[in-house]
Write a protein that binds this DNA or RNA. Structure first.
Lengths: 352, 352
DNA sequence: AATATTTTCGTGTACGTACACATTTTATTA
DNA sequence: TAATAAAATGTGTACGTACACGAAAATATT
C-alpha cells in the first residue's frame, strides 16, 4: 500500500510543450484554436511519451449524457429467448450508468411485423444517438436502418445481420458456420445412410432469414464431409405445440427419422413431443440455453444445444455503443460470438 | 448530449445530515472519530438513498498501490499452454494499471519442483498483498499457501485446485466434470464394444493430480451411461515426442484402439504420431486451445478439444484480487470456468 | 474555574480531465 | 498607426472521493 509518485498525463505534456493544459486538451480532442506549430509539437510529445488518457478522470469530468434506444423482440410465452439479450443490456447499463448514459426500450412482437414498425416510429419521435436493433424483419429493418443513417443515429445489430446494410457493428453468430457446426455434431449421431430431418419452426421466414442460413450451413457440412445421409427439410409456420404435434405426427407416420435438427430455440417443443409419445431412438439437436430446453438436455431427450451467448450479445452491444460514443474508439464492424456446444455435462458451467 | 443535473453522492449525504463530507467519508470507511449518534444518522441516510460510491472518483482519488505476485509455470518448448493465463493476467493488468496495482511475475518450470520452491522463496523476500498461484505441485503448494496465510497474503488458485486448502478464490475447471464431458463426447465416437485408451502424459503425477481427476470423470460417465467399451489407461512420464512415439508403438502393436483420450494439452504429440504413421480410424480427443493442437483439428486428426478459457482464467484471477482489495467486494470462493468444446467449425470464433 | 486532553468535526487540496471564460498575441482593417 | 477583429493560449472551476491538517466542542484534570 505504497504511494504513487511521478506526475503524468496532460500536465506532463503541457510542461514539456511549454503550454497550458487547456491547449493540450484542445489538440487531444482536435478542437480548433491551436496553431499548427504547437499542435505538431504537442502531437509529437503525445507520441513520444505514449500518452494514454485516464479514462476514469475523463469520464468523471465529462458531463455528457448519451441516449440509446433498444429495438428487440419481447420475451413471449412461446420462447423466453429474448430475455437474455435484454438482461445483458440491462447489466451493461447498470455498470455504465455512472458514465452518463440513458437507455430506452422498445420491444416488439416477433409474430407481428407491424409492432416493429410502430416501435421504430416511436424511436424517431424522440432523440437518440444510438440504437441496438434485432433486425428480425428484413424489409422493415432495412428501411429503419436507412432512416437512422439519414438522422445520424448509429445502429448496432444483434443476433442476426442483413447482408445488404452495414451498421456500426454486428454482434452475433456466424449463422452459416453455426449450421455447419451442427452438421458436424449430427454427423457423429446418425448411422450410415441415416435419416435426418431439419425443422424450421417460425412464423416468419424471409428469403434471407437466419434459420435458412443455418440450414444451408448444415447441409454444406454433410456435403463436404461426404456423409451419406438422407436430409429432409420441413418448415412449420404455426409455432404452437398443438400444431407442431400434428405436423410431426403426420410426418413420422410416413417417414423414419434418426435425428431431428431444429434450427432455433423451439427445439423444446419437439422434445416435449418425443417424450410424451415415448419416441426413443431419435437424436435431437437444437439451439439456445433456455430453461425449457435445458430440462430436456438433463433428461437426455436433447443431445446437444448450440448456443451463441445471448446475454453477452446484449452486453457487448451496449458496450460497443459506449466505446464508440464515450471513448471514441473505433469498434469492430463484425463481432462474431463463439459457437458453443451445450451438453448435459457442461451446461451448469455455461455463461450465457 | 445533454447535461446531468442533480447533485449526488457524499455531498448529498452531508447536506442531509448537516455535517461535512469528511465526516461522511469517515463513516463510509468506518474510520474512528465519529460520535455514535452522527454515525447512525449518516448510516441511515446512506441506506435511505441507497448510496453507491462512484468508483471512478474513488479510484481516481485513491493513491493506494497494491502489489501482487504471480506464481505460475513458464511456457515451455513442450507446451505453450501457460502463455494463455499469463496473457490474461497481463491484459487485466494493463486495463487496471490506472487503479494503482503492481504485478510481479515468478515463473517456474513444470518439470522441476525445485524451481517452484525457489520462486516462492523469492516472493516472501518481498512484500505482496496478494498472489496468483497455479498449484501444480500439491505438497509444495500446500506449504506455500500456509506460509501466505501466516503472512496475511491472499492467494488465488488458477487452473487446478487442492481440496485440502481454501484460498481466497479458485478459478478454473471442475476437473471431474470436465472428464465426464469428454466421456460423453467420446461415447458418440466409439462403436459398440469399442476400445478406448486414456493417455496421461506428464512428468509429475501426484496422487491428487488434476489429470487423474479428469480420468476419473471420464470413466464415471462411461459407467453411468453403461457404455460397453474397453477402457485402458496409460501414463507416460517422459513427455518428449520420441518417448511418446516409442510407447505408442509398442502399445499399438499388441492392442487395437478406436479412440484415444489425452487428459491434457499434449494431445498434439499423439496427433503428430498418428499422422506421421498414417494411422487412420483412431478418434482423438484432448485438451486446450493451442496452435499446436488446432492445426490437427483443422486436419481432422483431432476430433474434439476441450477447453477451459485459460486466458480468462488469468484475467479473472487478477480481477478477483482487485475486487477484493480495491473495491473491497466479497469474491466467490469458487469460480468454475465453462467447459468448452472446440471443433473444426467453431475454433475460429472461440475466445480463449 | 482554568487548563489540558481527548473526541468530534470541518476546511482545503489533490487525483486527471473537460470546458467556460478571460487574456494575450497576431492578423486585418480603417 | 491606431483601432479592431480574429486567432491562440491561459486561468479557474468542476466532476466525486480521499485524506492531511487544523478548528471546535466535549470531557477530563488540576
Amino acid at each position: 500500500m505504497l504511494k504513487k509518485t511521478e506526475l503524468s498525463g496532460v500536465k506532463e505534456i503541457a510542461r514539456r510543450a511549454n503550454v497550458s493544459i487547456a491547449t493540450v486538451d484542445r489538440v487531444i480532442h482536435n478542437r480548433p484554436g491551436v496553431s499548427i506549430k504547437t499542435k505538431e509539437k504537442i502531437d509529437a510529445i503525445i507520441k513520444e511519451i505514449d500518452y494514454k488518457p485516464n479514462l476514469l478522470a475523463r469520464r468523471l469530468a465529462s458531463k455528457k449524457v448519451f441516449r440509446f434506444a433498444v429495438l428487440i423482440p419481447k420475451e413471449s410465452t412461446e420462447t423466453e429467448y429474448w430475455k437474455a439479450p435484454l438482461e445483458g443490456i440491462q447489466t451493461a447499463w447498470s455498470e455504465m450508468q455512472v458514465y452518463g448514459i440513458d437507455v430506452s426500450f422498445f420491444l416488439y412482437d416477433l409474430n407481428d411485423r407491424k409492432t416493429f414498425v410502430e416501435a421504430s416510429e416511436k424511436i424517431f419521435q424522440d432523440t437518440f444517438q444510438g440504437v441496438i436493433v434485432a433486425p428480425s424483419f428484413i424489409g422493415e429493418s432495412v428501411e429503419f436502418f436507412k432512416k437512422c443513417e439519414a438522422l445520424k443515429i448509429k445502429c448496432v445489430f444483434i443476433n442476426s445481420d442483413i447482408s445488404t446494410v452495414k451498421p456500426l457493428s454486428y454482434i452475433g453468430p456466424d449463422l452459416f458456420q453455426s449450421g455447419k457446426l451442427a452438421g458436424n455434431l449430427c454427423k457423429y449421431l446418425v448411422p450410415q445412410q441415416g435419416k435426418v430431418l431439419i425443422l424450421n419452426i417460425s412464423r416468419e421466414l424471409d428469403a434471407e432469414h437466419h434459420l435458412l442460413r443455418k440450414e444451408a450451413g448444415f447441409k454444406a457440412h454433410f456435403e463436404e464431409a461426404q456423409v451419406s445421409a438422407d436430409i429432409q427439410v420441413m418448415s412449420l409456420y404455426k409455432t404452437d405445440y398443438i400444431s407442431v404435434t400434428k405436423e410431426l405426427d403426420s410426418y413420422l407416420k410416413s417417414h423414419s427419422v434418426d435425428l431431428i435438427f431444429v434450427t432455433n430455440s423451439r427445439v423444446f417443443t419437439v422434445a416435449k413431443y418425443l417424450e410424451e409419445n415415448n419416441i426413443s431412438g431419435v437424436r435431437l439437436v437444437g439451439y439456445d440455453y433456455l430453461s425449457q430446453n435445458l430440462s430436456y438436455v438433463e433428461k437426455d431427450v436433447i443431445d446437444f444445444l448450440i448456443c451463441q451467448k445471448p446475454i453477452e450479445q446484449g452486453y457487448q452491444a451496449l458496450l460497443t455503443l459506449c466505446e464508440h460514443f464515450i471513448n471514441q474508439q473505433v469498434v469492430d464492424k463484425i463481432q462474431f460470438m463463439p459457437i458453443d456446444i451445450i451438453t448435459k455435462e457442461n451446461y451448469n458451467y455455461y455463461k450465457n
